[in-house]
Amino acid sequence: MQLLWTSWLTVAVLGFYIWIIYKVGHARTQFQVKAPATDGPPEFLRVLRVHANTVEQMVLFFPALWLCAIWAGDKLAAAMGLVWLVGRCMYAIGYYADASKRSKGFMISTLAAMALLLAAMTGMSGVLK
């Protein structure tokens, strides 16, 4: 079984993750917040929260993505994973600008992760019958 589309989507998500790690490092330098401190001006805290919340979301996203790919199809999983990635990008860009602008991206990515999980369970249920 080849899962090429899901594999490429995984690489793209990890690229996004590397970008937000870079943003935290850059913000530490810009706002002079030395490790291991996690407190600073609101601009720094927003960058840090984007990183932390994305890590929290990945705990649900990656298993749901791969279960969906295996049980419901590679292209479906990759397409819904792309929606998740777009939502996370919207979340990050919105949050970097102003905390009140994060909600739309958060909802898109959360709903996409839930859809991945639902598609995986639907695919699994066909095997269990």
Score class of each variant (00 low, 15 high):
M1D: 11
Q2N: 15
Q2L: 15
W8E: 09
T10H: 04
T10K: 02
V11Y: 12
A12E: 05
A12V: 09
L14A: 10
I18F: 15
I18C: 13
I18Y: 14
W19K: 13
W19M: 14
W19V: 14
I20V: 08
Y22E: 12
H26N: 13
T29G: 12
Q30N: 11
Q30I: 10
Q30W: 08
Q30A: 13
Q32M: 11
V33K: 01
K34W: 14
K34S: 14
A35R: 11
A35Y: 14
P36W: 05
D39G: 13
D39L: 14
G40V: 02
P41A: 08
P42M: 06
L45A: 15
V47K: 06
V47D: 08
L48F: 09
L48P: 00
L48D: 07
H51L: 11
N53Q: 03
V55A: 13
V59Y: 07
L60N: 01
F62M: 06
F62V: 06
F62C: 03
A64C: 01
L65I: 03
L65Q: 04
W66F: 11
L67A: 10
K75L: 15
L76W: 11
A78M: 05
L82G: 12
W84E: 00
G94Q: 02
Y96A: 04
A97S: 12
A97F: 09
D98F: 11
K101V: 07
G105A: 02
S109Q: 11
T110S: 02
M114L: 13
A115Q: 00
L116C: 03
L118V: 10
A119P: 00
A119V: 02
A120G: 06
A120K: 03
S125I: 09
S125H: 14
K129V: 15
